[in-house]
Amino acid sequence: MFDLLSNANTQWVLIGSIMLGFASGVIGSFVLLKKQSLISDAMAHATLPGVGLMYIIFEYKSIPLFLIGATITALLATYSIQLIIKHSRIKTDAAIGSVLSVFFALGIVFLTYISKNTSGNRSGLDDFIFGQAASLVASDVRMITIGSAILIILSALFFKEFKITIFDPLYAMGLGLPVRFLNLVLLGLVVGIVVIGIQMVGVVLIAALLITPPLSARYWTDKLGRMTILSGVFGAVSGVAGTVISTIGEGLPTGPIIVLCASIIFLFSLLFGSKKGFIPKVVSTHEL
């Protein structure tokens, strides 16, 4: 086991998973407070057809091309959801569910088309569904690490602007803040983290990294700043623990293990969290 961990490639993967987890925890905090957790899930599912389409068009495997495709279809899905809500009587939940499932189905259709009708095989593409840390090469990991770092820096730069636009968009507009632009930046951050995360965690579960860590952090603090950092730490811990476990246990899919680690942290926070946790609450009601 220690041999494995001292391996240079594995070390890079671990650093990548820490950075990815931290970035998704930070961005997830904004997403949670903006009540867009499930929209991010739809975005994640919608990256699959983008990846497939790029392979069909260019007929060779190139991670940057895949990620461009993923970005395009994720944005298209977000736009579709907004379009449906704005121009019909369909409510938000049904709009998200419809877009999510149809885009994902389209992705599956593209993948089967690739494996049956093109000369290439789709192995490697399947890893996008649940993520596979073991198959990452050095350049992938470098991209994940640098990408996450950029996203974290952007989140830090716009922290106070995000805070006010999410809490009270009208007031923010009154202050003269470019609210539409800030919303776009946030959308960009979410798409960014989803796209760079799908290789490691997979399209089906990447949204959990945006939802679960901030929700856990909420049980420990009422301050947005602390919540964001804590959420990042929870994300990073889940990321690194999940990667280690899935690397040691051969063949265990990385994404689901990372998500399970995040879920365990959530369960612990739900029970013991100092602010809203179940047990402190019961104790304080008894004292009353």
Binding site: S37, L38, D41, V204, L205, A207, A208, I211, T212, L215, G255, P256, I257, V259, L260, S263, F266
Partner: peptide, 10 residues
Amino acid sequence: GVVFTSLFAL
């Protein structure tokens, strides 16, 4: 989100 991703991952 948190419930289904947890149970599904499991």
